[in-house]
Design a binder for these strands. Sequence first.
DNA 1: CGGATTAATTGACTTAAGTCAAATAATCCG
DNA 2: CGGATTATTTGACTTAAGTCAATTAATCCG
Lengths: 225, 225
Amino acid sequence: MLHRRIVSALTDNILNLIGNVSGYVIYLSGTQLAKRLMSAYLDKITDFIERLDMETANVLENCSVAKVFKKGDFLLRQGDVCKKSYLVESGIVRKYYLHDGKEITTELIFAGDIAVAFDSYCLQAPGREFIQAVTDVTVAVTDYAVFQKAKQQYPKLTALDLLMTEYYAMWLENRLFQFQTMDATQRYRLLIQKDPHVIQNVPLTYIASYLGISLETLSRVRAKM
Amino acid sequence: MLHRRIVSALTDNILNLIGNVSGYVIYLSGTQLAKRLMSAYLDKITDFIERLDMETANVLENCSVAKVFKKGDFLLRQGDVCKKSYLVESGIVRKYYLHDGKEITTELIFAGDIAVAFDSYCLQAPGREFIQAVTDVTVAVTDYAVFQKAKQQYPKLTALDLLMTEYYAMWLENRLFQFQTMDATQRYRLLIQKDPHVIQNVPLTYIASYLGISLETLSRVRAKM
DNA sequence: CGGATTAATTGACTTAAGTCAAATAATCCG
DNA sequence: CGGATTATTTGACTTAAGTCAATTAATCCG
């Protein structure tokens, strides 16, 4: 069921983003509080979905189509308009852009989470981001136009879209917070603490650029652990 | 008129965020393209507001109340729940949090733009951010609960909220992009190119932490210009 | 399997930016 | 005004992280 997955994905995600980095308390008022708050927000989304009327729930359900991509395949290329959103069912996807010939990973997307080039999707205009399958993946593809239309007919879908966009904005705020307050080691520790499977499945090059550090620095950070 | 201001604020903001930093082309496909795209998005918001039915437009209009703050006053303190959003009518407001005893400015808000502690507002839970008047300011205050209620009755307000939240998320993505691809000098140049009045009105300490650099580094960057 | 390509580590050196401390400059207010 | 507080600059030094280059490890596929 689409929505259940979205929600569980969000739960995982929150646990990934906020936490205690070996003695390093993130939210001023403490990690535990932050977790509770964010969970509360997820509950809000869960509740919201569960309270949807049958018809709206059904429309949401039928908005997406399953699709498979092989490792290395591109779901979206730089310069393309992002006309689909991809709910990852299995496997790993990443978003990245090129800068000075280097790939800068902006997001690592695991099962249950949604992959979309946000600005390109909102603007329906060519963007700089690539979306690529890091492993073989299965995704639930939702078309932009279809969802837009559905939102017009079923206003609650707009409210749901808003909740999820708010969540994404909070995720971005958190990422920014990490960049402004944590060094390479702390950022890496936080990542592996919350997404331990990242290490087995994602090349360190991707992880390094995701953390905003060089591959060599990441390697050295890992060495002393 | 509230909405007009929101829109013109957004326009300014976009011109602030994306641009050519003395020979440094930001969007891969070029600054001009990015500007056009973001403007198009603003047009979308403008259009949306202009097409609102009388009743909805009226409700939106009557959601807010004028208020004045003196320089240094706090609109919100760390640990408080952000129950209001503040549309700045005149003056400058900033958002910041404390980290290791230092103030980290997260946003500088000018006339026409909205000041809100986003996560605290969405979660309706205590947050880490302070919102403070950098100069004497007049703001249009909108209550969270009132706006929530209005959205329930007038679905188009939800759609408007979504558009603005999408805009904020894109703003955050852009800020993240700047942190990952630009050095101190480039970030400073971009800021003053787009917000030249910042220099006259905002203490360099605030600007430095907003750019994610130390006051001394900012001073040195400014010296060689 | 085993050579070849790709990924990761390690070493040596550079550099952007941070820190600490002191000196100016600006502004505020009695 | 003029002293006091606050803001900014400048200097000297440190440091986290980057770069370049070489090596080792892993994995891919014929």
